[in-house]
Design a protein around this nucleic acid. Structure first.
Lengths: 216, 216
DNA sequence: TAGATTGTTAATCGATTAACAATC
DNA sequence: TAGATTGTTAATCGATTAACAATC
């Protein structure tokens, strides 16, 4: 029971490894060395080997890594071999975008339900999923053993809904609201703050241009 | 012209400072110390002072930081005092979600046009913005002096469209496609890989639960 | 066996935190 | 002036890269 925690930096690189290995698999590539992969991914081979060895020795000296095996193993590490019943709170464009993205289902993220407060949306059906009112939230979560929720509602409502989700047993929140949620320590939150992402882009654009103009 | 580059870690924290300062401003708070802010934001006061001093001395000993002044200055650093004409390629749910998010306009990101290949979408009007066919892309970019583009199209089409954008003069791409784009070094790309974000959430949920069950 | 490439240790680099003199 | 708090230097911590022995 050695509680070796993996650093956040490593974890955030795993999905990208997974994506590249998936592409190699589709191309029919059987094996790959850390060096080849490092060239494709524009990272160092050292980092790849170091990252993977946090989880075990997936490679073989003189051979490299078996693409299919490594792909599967990283999938397991990421929990993609399990099923994750998911609900979406907020059935606006963003919520619908998520509901319509079929690849999530392929990875085990099964959208069980959608919720909204807007009466005009309630009752609509998106990809076979009926939009419900938020009154039914707690009951639905318990009946369907849902642990994951995507929060695609305005920031004003988000903290209140998040608390209800947590009380109803949700253990993972995918938060798109522009606010930091306070949750108990056994609940995980992954933020997607789009406006912050856009501001970063803006910063980089501006500093690139300032540089070209010889400023600073 | 001392080419002091600011680290990515610092830049990625700036929008969050900006958000908190905006909230304080709305609450009518006039000044704040790095210590108070550090408690609210759950970071160290040292980090706040260190981060801000990359850009200049915005505070005053014995007083702290003037909220309004600091908010404005960080806004300038992020380029939010300028106007950024923006186009959206891909008028599906995700593209529409971005188009409908009014706050972007407040921050200087002006949506000039939307584009799609789907003939059923072309001609539709979203928040006063007409959806155009991608044939008009190059001409539109040049006529409207657009430098920024959000790419909300499937990964298969993304590299090709990205190349067209770059050739037409786009300097910043907000990429939602699940693919890494290759662009010249004077073009900046900010990725929003939603599936990778969801996988990170899944990893953290699983490792939290494994921990509780006494595994590893 | 010889060559290739991993797993892993050691060295380097960068980022965060602590401490405190400067100063409002 | 005394107290508060910054700006900034120094110390620590962690992450990345380099190097190489182990081994397929």
């Amino acid at each position: 029971m050695e509680n070796r925690t993996i650093s956040k930096a490593v974890i955030s690189r795993l999905p990208r490894y997974y994506r590249y290995l998936g592409e190699l698999l589709e191309l029919g590539v059987e094996r790959i060395s850390s060096n080849e992969l490092s060239i494709r991914m524009k990272v160092t081979a050292s980092q790849i080997r170091q990252d993977l060895n946090n989880f075990g020795g997936f490679g073989q000296q003189g051979y490299g890594y078996n693409v299919k095996y490594l792909y599967t193993e990283i999938g397991k590490i990421l929990g993609l071999d399990r099923q994750h019943p998911l609900i979406i709170i907020g059935a606006g464009n963003l919520g619908q975008a998520i509901a319509n993205y079929a690849n999530f289902e392929k990875r085990g993220f099964i959208i069980k339900g959608m919720f909204d407060i807007n009466p005009r949306l309630i009752g609509l059906v998106i990809r076979g999923i009926e939009i419900r009112g938020v009154d039914d939230l707690e009951q639905f979560i318990q009946e369907n053993h849902v642990q994951m929720a995507a929060l695609t509602i305005p920031k004003t409502k988000a903290p209140e809904i998040a608390e209800r989700l947590v009380n109803a047993g949700i253990k993972a929140i995918w938060n798109f609201a522009h606010v930091d949620l306070n949750v108990p320590e056994d609940v995980v939150v992954e933020n997607v703050h789009l406006s912050e992402s856009l501001m970063k882009l803006s910063y980089r654009l501006c500093s690139m241009q300032d540089e070209e103009n010889g400023k600073e």
